[in-house]
Design a protein around this nucleic acid. Sequence first.
DNA 1: TAATACATGTTGCATTTGTAACAAAAATAT
DNA 2: ATATTTTTGTTACAAATGCAACATGTATTA
Lengths: 159, 159
Amino acid sequence: MTTQLKHKIPTDFSKTTFYKIDQLSIYIHNLAKNFFELRGVDITHDEFAALNFILNNPNICQRDLAKLLLRDRVRTGRIITSLEEKGYVNRVNNTKKNRLVRTLSITKSGKKLYDEQFSIMSQVMDKILEKFPEQKMVELMDTLLQLETALSEVVEFNI
Amino acid sequence: MTTQLKHKIPTDFSKTTFYKIDQLSIYIHNLAKNFFELRGVDITHDEFAALNFILNNPNICQRDLAKLLLRDRVRTGRIITSLEEKGYVNRVNNTKKNRLVRTLSITKSGKKLYDEQFSIMSQVMDKILEKFPEQKMVELMDTLLQLETALSEVVEFNI
DNA sequence: TAATACATGTTGCATTTGTAACAAAAATAT
DNA sequence: ATATTTTTGTTACAAATGCAACATGTATTA
């Protein structure tokens, strides 16, 4: 499999676009971890994302949530169990395509925690990004979404 | 802490720039995992990155490698131990600022594996990115590097 | 000179994650 | 009607990771 090179390929793995994104993700994870710890909030990055998806997709089932989180069914089950234990979500028996599934709904305290933390988190993120021209951030997001589309065509998750 | 908003803040955590980067990272991890598995190469993403850093920074010590990898000293130690067991790197007693440290060097088979795998990996990555205008990729990388600088100013690693 | 801090790396153990296998029930194919 | 596949979610166990504590020795401070 050969391709015609359109730009100079880096010879240094650490300077590739993909590795750079991976490293940024490590920063972002640490930022989130510190953010929640500083605020004394017992929740992980994955759990917070799950809250977001459940809030915006009422009655979503575990497997569909796993697909949104890009995590497998087992890990997603643990995330849900943890959120349920903390009183942020409820598991509800439901049906999907006539099949019995257990769907998820966010609780009042779950929504309250999400709204409060995301409000402040937005300020933190905005503070970090305010030095960038707005247009640059819009273009970045556009490129990230296109990258996601491209990657989703070649990467398959066993979910 | 309040900041003047310059652009519309998303109300959806999953649509923030930081979360998008995090999700792309999950794709990238799976891509790398599949890549090495498909090629029957027993190496992890972290280990491959470590090989790269050791190749480009001969005689680097464990702690400095940890800083480059953005991983803590314990995890980096495990990565090095695994690479040593596979015969890809050597631990060497050395001195740094008159202090006894164990520095790292890549072996012939380590360099061979890196060169071979990175050569093909580059083609895979280029194939995915070839649909993007070159200038867009250059701008993306530029923005990622600036983001990294911004994040490194607010996120501290305990290394 | 002595005390303290820092740098480098390891150890031990608890927690988290990955993975295969399993269970139950519906959907699909024969 | 029966067999097979698919979907959804859980269980069990091995492997990986996180974290605090520790060890050793140099550098810095008092």
